[in-house]
Amino acid sequence: MANEKKDKRFLLRLDQGLYDRLAEEANRANQSVNMYIVSLLSNNHGTKSFENRQIIGQTVLGKDLNVDHGLAFVSGIYYRYLINDNGNVDTTAKYAVIEANGNILTLQKI
């Protein structure tokens, strides 16, 4: 059993207010405080791309979408885009970036 993967343990000091908030959130998620902290760290440690961190949630005007080339200009970068309902671009509407996969953004009309 020398190859068995073992969990690492370390002491984490939290002030009482932070612990109480984490305990409350963990309770709502039906998790222990330890598992809740592990899930927070796992979900937020280096797994998200620039696009997922900085682009999702931004809005793009329909008039700023290049329909001929299928490009959207967001935060100084050109991305290919898809409309989430496969509809045509409404040049009078606003779109929210709801997903980023490499250089392709998925937009939803808002």
Results as ranks from 00 to 15, higher is better:
residue 1 M to H: 12
residue 2 A to H: 10
residue 4 E to H: 05
residue 7 D to F: 09
residue 8 K to A: 15
residue 9 R to A: 15
residue 9 R to T: 15
residue 11 L to A: 12
residue 11 L to K: 13
residue 11 L to P: 11
residue 12 L to M: 10
residue 13 R to I: 07
residue 13 R to A: 09
residue 15 D to I: 02
residue 16 Q to I: 09
residue 18 L to S: 14
residue 18 L to C: 11
residue 18 L to Q: 08
residue 19 Y to A: 09
residue 19 Y to T: 00
residue 20 D to V: 11
residue 21 R to M: 12
residue 22 L to V: 02
residue 23 A to G: 07
residue 24 E to N: 12
residue 24 E to D: 11
residue 25 E to F: 01
residue 26 A to N: 06
residue 26 A to L: 02
residue 27 N to C: 07
residue 28 R to M: 05
residue 28 R to V: 01
residue 29 A to Y: 04
residue 29 A to Q: 06
residue 30 N to Y: 08
residue 31 Q to I: 02
residue 33 V to F: 08
residue 35 M to Q: 15
residue 35 M to A: 15
residue 36 Y to H: 08
residue 37 I to F: 02
residue 37 I to N: 00
residue 38 V to M: 06
residue 38 V to D: 03
residue 39 S to V: 00
residue 39 S to Y: 01
residue 40 L to K: 01
residue 41 L to D: 00
residue 41 L to M: 11
residue 42 S to T: 09
residue 42 S to L: 08
residue 42 S to K: 12
residue 42 S to N: 11
residue 44 N to W: 01
residue 44 N to H: 14
residue 44 N to Q: 07
residue 44 N to T: 07
residue 44 N to C: 01
residue 45 H to D: 12
residue 46 G to Y: 05
residue 48 K to W: 05
residue 48 K to M: 07
residue 48 K to S: 13
residue 52 N to S: 12
residue 52 N to Q: 15
residue 52 N to W: 12
residue 54 Q to F: 14
residue 55 I to F: 04
residue 56 I to N: 02
residue 57 G to T: 03
residue 58 Q to R: 15
residue 60 V to S: 07
residue 60 V to H: 03
residue 61 L to W: 09
residue 64 D to C: 06
residue 65 L to C: 03
residue 66 N to W: 06
residue 67 V to R: 10
residue 68 D to C: 06
residue 69 H to I: 08
residue 70 G to T: 02
residue 71 L to R: 13
residue 74 V to K: 07
residue 76 G to R: 12
residue 77 I to H: 13
residue 77 I to Y: 12
residue 78 Y to M: 09
residue 79 Y to W: 09
residue 79 Y to Q: 02
residue 80 R to G: 06
residue 81 Y to K: 00
residue 82 L to H: 14
residue 82 L to M: 13
residue 82 L to W: 08
residue 83 I to T: 01
residue 84 N to Q: 10
residue 84 N to P: 01
residue 85 D to V: 01
residue 85 D to Y: 00
residue 85 D to F: 05
residue 85 D to N: 13
residue 87 G to W: 00
residue 87 G to S: 13
residue 87 G to C: 01
residue 89 V to T: 00
residue 90 D to C: 03
residue 92 T to G: 01
residue 92 T to R: 07
residue 93 A to V: 01
residue 98 I to M: 04
residue 98 I to Q: 07
residue 99 E to L: 13
residue 99 E to R: 12
residue 101 N to A: 10
residue 101 N to R: 14
residue 103 N to M: 13
residue 104 I to L: 10
residue 104 I to Q: 10
residue 104 I to M: 09
residue 104 I to K: 06
residue 105 L to E: 06
residue 106 T to D: 01
residue 106 T to A: 04
residue 108 Q to E: 14
residue 108 Q to F: 08
residue 109 K to W: 03
residue 110 I to K: 08
residue 110 I to H: 12
